[in-house]
């Protein structure tokens, strides 16, 4: 029985919803018992945490339980002891009004920087993280750029000839809602809410 199958059995036993799509096994963990389940996966032999991805589902067409999701990528590392190469993607939904979740750095030290990255770019607070500081964006930036309501191209630009690029209009052109400044209607975006 591979660890992947054991993870599925574990999910069924604890009545967790799981989905196997594009060969990624997503297991949805409840926010309150995230740490306990992650500890169980670690005990199951998933010795390697490869990635922590934060997603903001604000503009996603299909309804999701909460605005934010954090997807972990756990591997039973092949080539080391009895690692069989199983890969699972536990995910946890995090509400907008209380964006806090437990840190897993004490289980997998490799989660340190990836969690800091999610904190920096999406503003999710990892409770129990030993060193939760901004990592990529400048110190003076008080925003989380990967949130969907953080605009792109926000710096107003004044050109020498007096031409002035208004970010709002520029963005509208990029997102295909109207022609914007460039006169080009960009790619159509399904599920655009604004």
């Amino acid at each position: 029985m591979t660890r992947r199958e054991r993870a599925i059995a574990y999910a069924e036993e604890h009545e967790l919803t799981y989905e196997d799509r594009h060969s990624l096994l997503h297991i949805v963990l409840p926010l309150s018992s995230l740490k306990a389940h992650m500890r169980a996966f670690k005990a199951m032999g998933f010795n390697y945490l490869a990635n922590v991805t934060g997603i903001d589902y604000l503009e996603y067409p299909e309804p999701k339980p909460e605005r934010f999701a954090v997807v972990y990528e756990l591997v039973s590392l092949p080539g080391w002891k009895d690692g069989d190469g199983s890969r699972i993607y536990p995910r946890v939904y995090v509400p907008e009004d209380r964006p806090r979740l437990a840190s897993v750095v004490d289980l997998w030290p490799s989660a340190n920087w990836p969690e800091r990255e999610v904190f920096d770019l999406l503003g999710l607070v990892f409770e129990g993280h030993p060193d939760l500081r901004k990592i990529l964006t400048p110190e003076e930036l008080e925003a989380h750029p990967l949130r969907k309501d953080f605009p792109l191209g926000e710096t107003p630009t004044l050109f020498k000839d007096g031409r002035y690029i208004d970010p709002e209009a520029f963005r509208a052109g990029l997102k295909g809602k109207d022609k914007g400044l460039t006169g080009w209607r960009g790619g159509r975006r399904k599920g655009e809410r604004r």
Partner: peptide
């Protein structure tokens, strides 16, 4: 190295997350 790509059915990716090896290795 891997790209975690989330699509919402549109012509642009909804979210792209790069699992960059240097970033994790530097820890």
């Amino acid at each position: 190295l891997g790209y975690y790509v989330v699509s919402d059915g549109g012509s642009m990716p909804y979210r792209v997350k790069v699992r960059a090896p240097s970033f994790v290795n530097l820890q």
